[in-house]
Design a protein around this nucleic acid. Sequence first.
DNA 1: TCTTGTGAAACGCTTCACAGCA
DNA 2: TGCTGTGAAGCGTTTCACAAGA
Lengths: 206, 206
Amino acid sequence: MLKRTEVPEETMQRMLSYLRELDCMLQNGKETFSSQELAESLHVNPAQVRKDFSYFGEFGTRGVGYDTARLVRELRAILNLDRTWRLALIGVGNIGAALLNNPELQRQGFEIVLAFDNSSRIIGKRFGSVTVEDVSYLVTRIQEERVELAIIATPVSCAQAVADTLIRAGIKGILCFAPCHLQVPKGVRVVPIDIPMALGRLVYRL
Amino acid sequence: MLKRTEVPEETMQRMLSYLRELDCMLQNGKETFSSQELAESLHVNPAQVRKDFSYFGEFGTRGVGYDTARLVRELRAILNLDRTWRLALIGVGNIGAALLNNPELQRQGFEIVLAFDNSSRIIGKRFGSVTVEDVSYLVTRIQEERVELAIIATPVSCAQAVADTLIRAGIKGILCFAPCHLQVPKGVRVVPIDIPMALGRLVYRL
DNA sequence: TCTTGTGAAACGCTTCACAGCA
DNA sequence: TGCTGTGAAGCGTTTCACAAGA
C-alpha cells in the first residue's frame, strides 16, 4: 500500500468508474462481487482492479470477494464523495442552464448554489432556488458563501478572465466547458470538458 | 516515423490540443512557432511535441521552427477534421437542446442533422433547421441521411437501448453524455462525457 | 547558432503469477 | 478450493541528449 500521493491519476479515474458501476450493482441487489466480475463489466483486467483497490487498503476477503455496500462506502470516502460540494456556475447560456436544471448533479453530491452572468437579460432569472447574479459580485459572493468549486460555462473569449477572478476569490477547482487551455497557478485543479475535442477523438481513424 | 496504427492514443489527444492552440495562435497573427513555445503554453515537454509530430511526418525546419498555417492544415488532415461530419442527436432534454443551439460545433465541422426524442411534448419542436423526430424512426432516418456519428443525451435508463439501436443503424462513433458504461461491439468507438465523474476528478485530494 | 528529428535511457503503468488466507 | 493482495516482470510512454541541417 503506497502513500496517497503516489496513487496514479489513472487509478483515481478508474476508482470513479468502479464506484459508478458498484452503485448500479447495489441497486440491482448484488451484495458481493469478485474483481473478475467488476473487471468484465468495465473491460479491464481483474488484476488492475485489485491493484487499484490495494493502493488504499485491503477491502476484500480471500476466496470470497468484496462486499458491494462496503466498497461503495470506502470508495466514496477515498474519492471525497461522502459529503456535499457547493459550486458556483459562471455563464448561464445553454450549457449553464442545462446544468442548473440537471437534478443528477445534486443526487451525486454537487449543488450549484451561485450562478453568474454578465448579460442583463439573464441576471435575475431563477432556476429552482438559485437566482442568477451579476458577475461583478463574483469574488464577494463566493467568499460569503464559502464556495470551493466553480464551473466555467462562458464563451472562450472570457474564460481566462473568469478563471483569474475565481482564483482571486480562492476557488480550488474549476470544471471548464470553454474549449481552451486555462493558465492557473499550482494548487488549483482544472478539469476540462471540451465537446469539440471529444468529437475530435471520435472521428480519429474512423 | 511509425505506422499510423502504432500512434499512441495519448499522442492523438495531444494533437487535438495542439490544433486548438495553433488555431488560436493563427488568429493572433503568429506565423511560426517552436516546439518550445507550443510546449510552454500547454505545459508539456518540448520533446513530446516534436515526438508527437514525428509519428506523422517531418513538418518543421531545423533552426527555424514550424509554420503555423501549415501545421494547422496538416493536423486537420491527420485528425480527419478537414471535412464536415453529420451527427444524429438522441435525447433533446436540457443538454440535447444546448447542443442543438451551440454554433461552436458547426464551426468545428460537426453538424447535427437529425434529432430524436420519445416525448410527444418535444417531438416536432424546431431548432434552426432541425426538427425533433420520433425515436421510433431512428434506424430508417439515420440510414436515409447517411449519418455516421451520434450523440446520446438521454437518461441513463435508456442509454444502452439507444446505443444498441444506433449500432443496428450502422453508427460507428458515439458521444455519450449518459453517466454509464456502454457495451458496444468492436469497431464502434465510444467517447464518454460524464459530468458527475468530471466533478469527481475535481474533488479528489482537494 | 538555433531548432528539429530521433535513438536510447528512464520512467511509470499494467499484467502476470503465485503466496497467503478464508 | 477459490479469490485476494502483491512483488516482479513486461511493456508502452516520456524524456533526454545529441546528430543533422537550415
